[in-house]
């Protein structure tokens, strides 16, 4: 691998399955995330996108299938303790009893001064160095997410997982966060996997948008627009429209909002226009 992409972690998923009781959440999912790639995963509630993220984070175990990294096959879940994989949740999950800089320093090892210096550096990257001594309770929602981002960045992750981290923020703060996330992604060159409800957000940020339906990849869309992207552009609107159309236009029988009913309406593999694994390989090659 080139030195530029040293930070990114490439990941290959093969026939990954996961179910909760009768309900199949991930059904033989196969895809590939290239090192340094920014992938967005969209889909309706309950489609399995958050489950996929939790598998990548090592928070849940894989029941069947394989998960490999470009460093070699992952023995079990991806290592959490090495700092290679970090996750940002929908809520910032800051420890309320620690001030901002100590929250960022969570889990860092080394001398006290060194840890603090690293945490302050990460805080200044997200523009919050001057709030280092405050309690998380005194910050706004957007500021808390920025602290959470700094807390993830301080470990120099090779894979950053974003589980709808902007879902609870107001529109203006979201736009600022998009810019911030894009900037740190370009500086740090990690692989980013963003789960979101917001198709526009996925097209703004991602190199590739994966649409998951009933535990399978229904669409694998490359986004080849120059960065920073402009929502007003025709190409942007076309791509957004295509993903959104696919998301809305799916025949209702293969999707259900209510849990436990998916097993009664099994998803037929012939519906996808092309094999999802092919699409993943094409995309991966294009990045490599």
């Amino acid at each position: 691998m080139s030195t530029r992409n040293r930070n990114g972690l490439g990941i290959r998923l093969e026939n990954v399955r996961r179910h909760f009781g009768e309900r199949v959440v991930l059904d033989a999912l196969t895809t590939h995330f290239a090192a340094g790639e920014f992938v967005a995963i969209v889909g309706r509630s309950g489609c399995g996108k958050s489950t996929l993220l939790r598998l990548l984070a090592g928070l849940d175990a894989i029941e069947a299938g394989r998960l490999e990294t470009d460093a070699g096959p992952a023995a079990g879940p991806l290592s959490q303790t090495s700092g290679d994989v970090r996750i940002m949740y929908q809520d910032a999950r800051l420890l309320p009893w620690r001030n901002v800089v100590d929250n960022v320093a969570l889990g860092l090892k080394g001398s006290r001064d060194n840890v603090r210096a690293l945490a302050l550096e990460a805080l200044s990257q997200v523009g919050l160095a001057e709030r280092a001594g405050e309690w998380p309770g005194n910050l706004s929602g957007g500021q808390r997410q920025r602290v959470a981002l700094a807390r993830a960045l301080v470990h120099r992750p090779r894979l950053l997982l974003l589980d709808e981290p902007l879902g609870a923020l107001d529109a203006l703060t979201r736009i600022e966060m998009h810019r911030l996330i894009e900037r740190v992604w370009r500086e740090h060159c990690f692989t980013a996997v963003l789960v979101t409800h917001d198709v526009s957000e996925s097209v703004i940020l991602a190199d590739r948008v994966l649409l998951i339906e009933a535990g399978r990849i229904a669409l694998d869309q490359r986004v080849d627009l120059p960065r920073p992207r402009d929502r007003g552009e025709a190409a942007f609107a076309r791509l957004e429209g295509r993903v959104l159309g696919r998301l809305l236009g799916e025949a209702p029988h293969s999707f259900s909002e209510t849990p436990h009913s998916l097993s009664e309406t099994p998803h037929s593999p012939g519906e996808t226009p092309h094999s999802p694994s092919d699409a993943a390989f094409i995309a991966a090659r294009a990045v490599a």
Binding site: L59, R86, I87, R93, L95, L106, G107, R151, H155
Partner: peptide, 10 residues
């Protein structure tokens, strides 16, 4: 959630 977060941070 905080315990899960703590675990995922090593």
């Amino acid at each position: 959630e905080l315990i899960e977060m703590g675990r995922s941070y090593g």
